[in-house]
């Protein structure tokens, strides 16, 4: 109340849930393509199907994300302007260039994986090109927020790290969920041997996932630290964010999206020899869903909270 400061600016939100959707879907897309390449590189010849699922999902997810982004644009039909102009300072420009590229190369890669008899070196080369490309896109998702000096909540290093870890967790979760559905539809889950093999194969993925979640939690902790003990505007931004979007971030994003999956994953690790396949499937599905659910809401909370107007620093 005292001092009372009034600065009436235009009340509309610049970025809303559609931007969060783009970050979320794009992130999952980046994660899934990396997953496909990873499996292809390190488990040669194995897991053909999960690799296929992952490779196809990437262009679809990234495209969906782009659609949401386009829907947010004031003039979506002018989006081609991004392609014919050059501004390397702008993360959005990088996004505009590299996301479509990722989609195109992703489709090409997925098509190659469809036919495994084709020259394997060829698709490996494409896969290796896709790695840096998807990391650029993933980093873009972080930088899009992090470069804004005007937004203390975003303007931190952990913002970028969180985005990168975010694409790992949501990418894997998305692949697992979709792959399970795919298997189910194909009737393969009912085939006992096949399923045992699948579960076994999932272990390494699950371990990566648990590791990424732990890192993600640590990153959020660092993010919090840097704001909590940062300059005045950092502290104000954190307080304001917690006031308005605290429940969304901490409960939906962290609680349901990271902690709960971690517990479930832990249970799965501890009970690794559990033979109740049905339960295992349920755990995998629930965990994946929670990670995706939380992954969206942490992004939404961050996108919205970062735009809250801070109290203005009086002119010195």
């Amino acid at each position: 109340m005292n001092p009372e400061i009034i600065y009436n600016t235009y009340p509309g939100l610049a970025w809303d849930w559609r931007v969060a959707m783009d970050l979320f879907l794009g992130g999952a897309g980046v994660g899934s393509i990396l997953f496909a390449v990873f499996v292809d590189e390190f488990f040669q010849g194995k897991y053909r199907r999960i690799r296929q699922t992952a490779a196809w999902m990437s262009p679809i997810l990234v495209t969906l994300g782009l659609v949401f982004l386009l829907l947010k644009l004031g003039r979506p039909f002018h989006a081609f302007n991004t392609l014919i102009n050059f501004n390397p300072h702008s993360p959005l420009w990088w996004g505009g260039i590299f996301q479509p590229l990722l989609v195109i190369l992703g489709v090409m890669y997925a098509r190659k994986l469809n036919n495994i008899d084709e020259d394997s070196t060829n698709h490996r080369t494409l896969g290796r090109i896709l790695v840096p490309l998807s990391i650029i896109v993933g980093t873009y998702h972080g930088l899009l927020l992090a470069i804004n000096v005007s937004r203390p909540l975003w303007n931190t290093g952990p913002t970028v790290v969180a985005a990168i870890l975010g694409f790992i967790t949501t990418g894997i979760a998305a692949v697992m969920l979709v792959h399970l559905i795919r298997m189910k539809l194909a009737g393969r889950l009912d085939d006992g041997d096949h399923f045992a093999k699948f579960i076994d194969d999932m272990k390494v993925v699950r371990n990566i996932l648990v590791g990424a979640i732990l890192l993600q939690l640590f990153t959020f902790f660092l993010w919090w630290l840097s704001l909590r003990f940062g300059v005045l505007t950092d502290r104000q931004a954190l307080a304001l964010a917690n006031e308005h979007y605290g429940p969304m971030f901490w409960f939906l994003g962290i609680g349901m999206g990271l902690i709960l999956p971690l517990l479930l994953g832990g249970i799965a690790i501890l009970k690794g020899e559990e033979k109740d396949r049905r339960l295992q499937v349920v755990i995998i599905m629930v965990t994946s869903f929670l990670i995706l659910f939380g992954g969206f809401f942490f992004r939404l909370a961050v996108v919205l909270a970062g735009q809250l107007s801070l109290p203005l620093n009086p002119l010195l």
Binding site: Y7, T9, Y10, G12, A14, W15, K72, L73, G74, R75, P76, H78, A79, N81, T82, N85, S90, L92, I147, N148, V149, S150, R151, Q307, S309
Partner: peptide, 20 residues
């Protein structure tokens, strides 16, 4: 050239850019 992405509004520390 504007596509209406509002990145400028987000970037501006002074809230002086308006979106139609």
């Amino acid at each position: 050239k504007c596509i209406g992405c509002a990145a400028c509004r987000i970037a501006c520390p002074y809230d002086v850019i308006y979106f139609n």
